[in-house]
Amino acid sequence: MKVLTLNFLTCAVKACKSTSTSFPLHPKDCEMVSDTIEPNPKLLYNILPRVNWTALLTTVAELGFPELPPNPPTIEELQADEKMTQELHTLLLETQISEGCLVCGNCGHAYAIKEGIANFLLPNHLV
């Protein structure tokens, strides 16, 4: 489960989706690993405008990573700053949650992550 993926997930419970507290999901008791993924600036530059930056700031703080700037860098800023491009690549695509869970801030349901894969199948009473 990549940090970037977390930015595009919310609670699977229908009633939670319309609430502001269900996004982003909150990582809990997480073990992190780092994979090596080939850098792709074309992908990274164009993804950033689609990332919910506020949610990313929350995720980064909850995982205990160094703070990000309050606003997303522009493509021009990234092109001029190789270090920042590399750091964002590492954070968004290479940093992964291998074990732990993701908790909904609205209903409290915890989705397990095992061997890097999150399971969003709901128990019958929540469907």
């Binding site: 970037l4 993926t5 695509l93």
Partner: peptide, 9 residues
């Protein structure tokens, strides 16, 4: 890579 996969209905 670089994609992601989850278990969901």
């Amino acid at each position: 890579e670089p994609h992601s996969a989850i278990i969901a209905d």
